[in-house]
């Protein structure tokens, strides 16, 4: 009797598994119902995503999430941040644990096409560089033959490194750690001669060393690392929202709309600004959001330029010049399609 019962239960479970397969991917409804956006960020990377002692997160990637929360929920503070290592990030997004991933993640062909994920744009153009111990007296990355290199597991960094050394006929030993803290510690303790990661992060990682002056960043940049937010594939509504929130913040910078003047701009005569802020047209409705979606994001979080200056710009400890991340009409790569 007991056996029959357990067999029956088993069969029921099996049918349940078979039947419950096709759950629709409707992230927008989920986020609205929850009243909170769940966003995957790094475990702690100054300038991009870093929690303070009180658990408040700041950074460029954090602001990207806050912009979406403001656009969707009308409140930039309604975000829950989930810290993820490089290895955990994609599974967390695929499994639905997070609504979007904003964790200095490089947009690559393989990631875009085989993980069931979509990259919703670029919020920082980066490239890979090297941090070396000064006492080694190395002046260029081409002098690194035979070096031990500390890297973080599950990154594009791991792949670029192998390509670069191979192309230059040099050998190296990779020492691969799971978290960036371990990577820095391994470098600080002298387990490796060099630490490699995205250049924007090198300055931040260097600042974590006990003696930052003992290490220096080499001039070479060996790869393209366009970093941006990621969402699940086959949820186009949500994909559009994340993509266009970032575009809205870029367009706001281009149109001169800032968090400070957003209210005044509501009275603007400029048609593009009117469409952007929702005083004219129905761009918000087309996304399934309220007409003030972009206004909220800009008012509460700021335009892209503000996000940049606040988190990584020349006045921050990271002191990164706008460079490639300037708007297209100011000599950079940042280009958002028009608001119409």
């Amino acid at each position: 009797m007991k056996k029959t019962m357990s067999v029956l239960t088993g069969a029921l479970v099996a049918t349940a598994v078979t039947a419950g397969a096709a759950s629709a991917a409707d992230t927008l409804e989920t986020v609205k119902a929850r009243g909170e956006l769940i966003c995957g960020v790094s475990t702690g990377l100054p300038g991009f995503s870093l929690p303070d002692e009180k658990g408040n997160w700041t950074g460029l990637d954090v602001d990207t999430c806050r912009g979406v929360a403001a656009a969707v929920l009308g409140d930039a503070t309604k975000v829950k941040f989930i810290p993820l290592t490089a290895k955990e990030r994609f599974t967390a997004l695929q499994s639905g644990e997070i609504d979007m991933l904003s964790r200095n993640t490089t947009w690559t062909h393989t990631r875009d096409t085989s993980l069931g994920l979509n990259f919703a744009g670029v919020n920082f153009y980066d490239g890979q560089g090297f941090l070396v111990q000064k006492e080694l007296g190395v002046k260029s990355a081409t002098e690194l033959d035979g070096a031990s290199v500390c890297i973080q597991s599950g990154t594009t960094t791991e792949l670029n490194l192998a390509d670069y050394f191979k192309a230059n006929n040099m050998s190296f030993s990779p020492v691969v750690y799971d978290t960036s803290d371990q990577t820095v510690q391994g470098f600080a303790a002298g387990r490796c001669d060099i630490l490699t990661s995205d250049t924007s992060q090198l300055a931040a990682l260097r600042s974590k060393l006990d003696n930052p002056d003992a290490a220096e960043i080499l001039p070479e940049v060996i790869s393209k690392e366009p970093l941006g937010p990621v969402v699940r594939q086959a949820d186009d509504v949500w994909f559009n929202i994340v993509k266009w929130t970032l575009f809205a913040q870029l367009n706001a910078e281009e149109l001169g709309v800032t968090s400070a003047n957003a209210d005044d701009m509501l009275k603007s005569e400029n048609a593009s600004i009117q469409r952007l802020l929702g005083t004219n047209g129905d761009l918000g409705e087309k996304l399934g959001l309220g007409s003030n979606w972009a206004y909220n994001a800009i008012k509460q979080v700021g335009n892209y330029g503000e996000m940049f200056e606040r988190n990584v710009g020349p006045k921050t400890p990271l002191q990164i010049p706008r460079g490639a991340n300037a708007l297209w009409n100011k000599g950079g790569f940042m280009y958002a399609p028009p608001v119409r």
Binding site: A86, T110, S114, S153, E158, L159, V176, Y177, D178, Q182
Partner: peptide, 21 residues
């Protein structure tokens, strides 16, 4: 994997999994 010894979990279930998904 906690200290980066390249065993099967670190190499295959770590890096390989992450690069291929």
């Amino acid at each position: 994997t906690a200290i980066g010894y390249p065993d099967i979990v670190s190499v295959f279930m770590g890096t390989t999994l992450n690069q291929t998904g």
